[in-house]
Design a protein around this nucleic acid. Structure first.
Length: 262
DNA sequence: GCGACAG
DNA sequence: ATCTTGTCGC
């Protein structure tokens, strides 16, 4: 006969690796960093020339092997002017609401490396694959990264993180009910808080992306900038980071299998 | 109690 | 996140 404790471990394997104590530490860290969060424009919009994008891909065979990627694009031409990769092993599991503790370390390392290596192209603003304040405690990966790197950031979600009564079907309803032909709807939660917007980023994409303030950027500015980078549904900086990240892992895997075969 | 839950 | 080619349409 299993004890109640054993039943829990067997039913929820992730609970064995992420203790409630660790979660509490994470919550405290988020609440502490959140005090430094700035939700208004705090950068020179005129000098906005380079926009960064970050993403992480994981190996299918060994999901602890990951490739963090930083790209920088010229905002005018949307051409990639810088790219860098970091192959790492990630032990921290994915826990909804705590993505930053899994992904931020690699991305911060890439930003630091670039600041030393190529400060001339260092981005004035960063688009992050993950939410900003659209988060259970108002402090998602984009905000986390922005505060730690002291860099203006915008959060981009490809799926809705259910917060404050916001639901997938609710957003669909908002978009279909939108008065004119507006592709952008405000995400106002049950509490009255505004968490960000859902936006159909191209004319033919039914599925929206979710934009939220990361750090040192207002929501209106965030929307404007994201719009200007959307050749496809996913904003180009993030899309390029994603594409190149996967390509890097694919080539890495080819090198690995070559070694096994010989 | 049940389901939902960024990447 | 990851699995994954062809295929439908402009």
């Amino acid at each position: 006969m299993l004890s109640e404790e054993e039943k829990q471990v067997k039913s929820y394997p992730e609970a064995a690796t992420t203790s409630s104590v660790e979660i509490q530490n994470w919550i405290e860290a988020q609440d502490l960093l959140k005090k430094k969060l700035i939700k208004e424009d705090e950068f020179e919009g005129d000098s906005l020339k380079y926009v960064g994008g970050v993403d992480i891909s994981f190996l299918k065979e060994d999901s602890s092997v990951a490739c963090g990627t930083l790209v920088v694009l010229n905002l005018q031409t949307l051409q990639v002017v810088y790219e860098d990769f970091s192959l790492v092993t990630v032990q921290v599991p994915y826990v909804p609401g705590f993505l930053a503790f899994r992904e931020a370390p690699v991305l911060l390392e890439l930003l630091e490396r670039m600041k030393k290596r190529d400060p001339h192209l260092y981005p004035q603003l960063l688009l992050v694959d993950g939410n900003g304040i659209l988060h259970p405690r108002g402090f998602g990966l984009a905000s986390h990264l922005g505060v730690l790197a002291n860099l203006p950031t915008i959060g981009i979600g490809k799926n809705l993180h259910h917060v404050d009564g916001l639901t997938h079907s609710g957003v669909r309803r908002l978009l279909s009910e939108s008065k004119n032909n507006d592709s952008v709807v405000t995400l106002r939660g049950t509490s009255g808080c505004i968490w960000g917007v859902a936006m159909r980023s191209t004319v033919d994409s039914l599925k929206p992306i979710y934009i939220s303030i990361g750090h040192r950027v207002s929501l209106d500015t965030a929307i404007r900038i994201v719009k200007s980078t959307c050749k496809f549904r996913v904003p180009e900086p993030i899309r390029q980071a994603d594409i190149r990240s996967r390509e890097y892992l694919r080539k890495f895997q080819m090198g690995m299998s070559k070694r096994e075969t010989s």
